[in-house]
C-alpha cells in the first residue's frame, strides 16, 4: 500500500475532511442561490428579448452581448470592485454576496436565452387551437403553453446548471471559501498537490454525474410529443 500513500495519502485528506465539507457546502449554497435568482432574472430577460419595445429590448440585448463576450473572471472583478461604488449597501457585503451577484449577472442571460427558446418553441397553432375551444388566457397558459415550454426548457436548463456549478470554482479567486479553496488551502499548508486537486476534481465529477443522471431521468420522463417534436 506504500505506493498508494505516496501518490495519494488519503489520511491527509481525512484530516481536511471538515474543510472540504465546508467548501462543498458553500459551493452548493452559492450555486443554488444563483440558480434560483438567475432563473427569475433570466425570465425577465427572456420577456424583454421577445418585446417589441425598443426601449426595453435594446439595453437588455446590449447587456446580454456584453456578458456573452467577456470572461466570467473579469465580470467577477468588475462586480467585486464596482458594486460597492454603485450600491452603498454593498460595502458591508461578504465576498460570498459579491460572488453570488456576479454569478447571477453572468448566468441570467444564458438562462434567459433558454427560456426564450422554450417560449418560442410552442407553435402558434397550439395557442390558436386553445382559443378556438374557448380557453381563457390563464387556462391556455396553464394547460397548453407552459407544459410544452417547460418540457423543452428543462433539459438545457439542467445543462446550464452544471455550467453554473463549475463556474462557482472561480469564486475562490475572490477568496470565497468554496470547494476549490479547500483544495488550495490543503496544498498551501501541506504542499501535497495530488491530495488537494485530485480530491477536488473527483468531487466536482461526482456532482456532474448526479446532474447527468438527473438530466437523463428528466429526458425519459418528459419524452412525450412535446419533447419528440423538437427532433
Amino acid at each position: 500500500m506504500n505506493w498508494l500513500l505516496d501518490f495519494y495519502n488519503y489520511r491527509i485528506v481525512a484530516q481536511y475532511l471538515d474543510r472540504f465539507a465546508a467548501g462543498l457546502g458553500n459551493t452548493l449554497t452559492a450555486a443554488g442561490i444563483s440558480l434560483v435568482l438567475s432563473i427569475i432574472f433570466g425570465t425577465f430577460i427572456a420577456v424583454a428579448l421577445l418585446s417589441d419595445r425598443q426601449a426595453l429590448y435594446r439595453p437588455i440585448a446590449a447587456y446580454v452581448a456584453f456578458i456573452r463576450a467577456t470572461p466570467l473572471l473579469v465580470q467577477i472583478y468588475l462586480v467585486y470592485y464596482g458594486l460597492p461604488a454603485l450600491l452603498p449597501i454593498a460595502k458591508s457585503w461578504s465576498d460570498m454576496y459579491f460572488g453570488i451577484a456576479a454569478l447571477v449577472l453572468n448566468s441570467a442571460p444564458y438562462m434567459g436565452e433558454i427560456i426564450r427558446a422554450g417560449i418560442e418553441s410552442v407553435p402558434r397553432g397550439q395557442i390558436e387551437g386553445a382559443k378556438a375551444v374557448g380557453m381563457t388566457f390563464n387556462e391556455r397558459l396553464r394547460h397548453i403553453v407552459l407544459p410544452q415550454a417547460f418540457a423543452n426548457t428543462l433539459p438545457p436548463l439542467i445543462g446550464q446548471t452544471a455550467v453554473l456549478i463549475k463556474d462557482t470554482s472561480l469564486l475562490s479567486i475572490i477568496t470565497v471559501f468554496e470547494f476549490t479553496s479547500a483544495g488550495i488551502l490543503l496544498n498551501s499548508e501541506r504542499v501535497r498537490p495530488n491530495e488537494s486537486f485530485i480530491t477536488i476534481a473527483l468531487g466536482y465529477l461526482a456532482i456532474y454525474v448526479v446532474i447527468l443522471l438527473l438530466a437523463r431521468m428528466v429526458k425519459q420522463r418528459l419524452a412525450g410529443p412535446a419533447w419528440n417534436a423538437q427532433g
Binding site: K166, L170, S196, F197, I207, Y208
Partner: peptide, 11 residues
C-alpha cells in the same frame, strides 16, 4: 466536461 477549467488547470 464534469470539472471546472480552473481545477483542470491546477491538475
Amino acid at each position: 466536461r464534469g470539472t471546472p477549467f480552473l481545477v483542470q488547470l491546477y491538475l
